[in-house]
């Protein structure tokens, strides 16, 4: 659940951090996964892969439930509620490392509104989606979003059931300049693996027997 929360709330900031080349030239030589005013999360350069997952798969987007891997990942991964404890622990094989930041200026994004969206129907020039307010302050909405608002790399991800996040707010550059910004990012979900589908079939068979359904 911690990973899922990390992904849910910080995906946009995480992407901004990772897309910014200035920030990526870090002295720690790892790839920056996430950064805010106080913390920087980078990949551990001594650990190049973890099981079958790449860092991107396990660090950016894949919640634990979608990536049944070595339990070490679960125990050493991002604990966003307890960052300080994680820092104090020595975890040599952890694929990520948290660094405290004190004075470094970064590109920040201040969100005024953020929705989680699900594509319900696609049209030639737009798609119908349900928008759920991530702050829980506003009722759900349904919108037809124009395809011109979607980046080229995300266009191919638009399909019924595809999940995206839409943030509207201010981007604050290292120089302090504020720019109004609207970011729509589609989740890059992993594919269904044969093991997951077999596991589901086993669970279903067990349920059918337990419930006496023939």
């Amino acid at each position: 659940m911690q990973l899922a929360r990390f992904e849910q709330y910080d995906q946009e900031r995480l992407r901004i951090a990772s897309d910014n080349s200035d920030i990526n030239n870090s002295e720690e030589e790892g790839k920056i996964l996430y950064m805010d005013r106080k913390w920087k999360v980078i990949t551990n350069p001594d650990v190049t892969s973890y099981g079958q997952l790449t860092f991107q798969e396990c660090g950016f987007i894949a919640p634990q439930e979608e990536a049944p891997v070595d339990s070490k990942i679960n125990s050493t991964y991002i604990d966003i509620d307890n960052k300080s404890n994680l820092l104090q622990k020595e975890i040599p094989e952890s694929p990520i490392v948290w660094y405290p930041l004190k004075h470094q200026k970064t590109t920040m994004f201040t969100s005024l509104k953020k929705w989680r969206g699900v594509v319900l129907k696609t049209y030639k020039d737009c798609f119908l989606c349900r928008l759920v307010d991530q702050d829980g302050n506003s009722p759900d909405e349904e919108a037809e979003i124009l395809l011109t608002e979607i980046s080229d790399e995300d266009l191919q991800l638009i399909d019924i059931g595809a999940v995206f996040y839409w943030s509207i707010g201010y981007q604050i550059n290292p120089s302090g300049t504020r720019t109004r910004s609207s970011i729509i990012r589609f989740r890059r979900l992993p594919v269904w693996r044969s093991e997951e589908l077999s596991e589901a079939q086993k669970k279903a068979e067990k349920t059918l027997i337990t419930l006496g359904i023939t």
Binding site: L112, K113, D125, C126, R130, S138, P139, D140, E141, E142, A143, E144, I145, L146, E149, I168, R180, S182, I184
Partner: peptide, 20 residues
């Protein structure tokens, strides 16, 4: 929503409706 949010929403959508 706040004005800035409404401006972006208007520019990005063909239509938007609140679920009841």
């Amino acid at each position: 929503k706040p004005k800035i949010v409404e401006q972006f929403v208007k520019g990005a959508t063909k239509s938007i409706y609140q679920v009841n």
